[in-house]
């Protein structure tokens, strides 16, 4: 939980799925996606949706990934805090605002 929060979403190494009730967390690898020639954000968004998450906290989320997450009903929160623990603390404290659009332009891959 003290690990650094990767500022990018699609090509982040891992995702942490955190259960707010039990405070358990599991790690999902995204390494397969690091090598995607294109559409890494779209793949990552599907992974998050499949994991059953209700919300995503990330640094930057592109428009394509955002479209997928929106369709899957996953809320997106952007933050630039350095660690996962801090991001989570801010979320719990209600200090993060929900993104209603992608905060980075997609690269035109």
């Amino acid at each position: 939980m003290t690990a650094a929060l990767d500022p990018s979403f699609g090509r982040a190494k891992n995702f942490i799925v955190y259960d707010l009730q039990t405070q358990d967390f599991t790690l999902i690898s995204n390494t397969q996606n690091l090598n995607a020639a294109q559409g890494a954000g779209i793949q990552a968004a599907q992974t998050i949706a499949k994991a059953g998450a209700a919300a995503l906290i990330t640094g930057h989320c592109g428009p394509k990934a955002f479209r997928v997450l929106e369709a899957a009903g996953v809320k997106v929160y952007n933050t630039d805090v350095p660690t996962i623990a801090e991001a989570l603390a801010r979320y719990k404290a209600g200090e993060l605002t929900e993104a209603n659009a992608a905060n980075v332009e997609g690269h035109w891959v």
Binding site: Q38, G39, I42, A45, K64, R67, V68
Partner: peptide, 18 residues
């Protein structure tokens, strides 16, 4: 192979630019 389609449970979404 180009990740142009995404599935979120319903009919897949298309990203024509990919």
């Amino acid at each position: 192979q180009f990740n142009a389609l995404a599935s979120v449970g319903k009919a897949p979404m298309l990203f024509p630019e990919l």
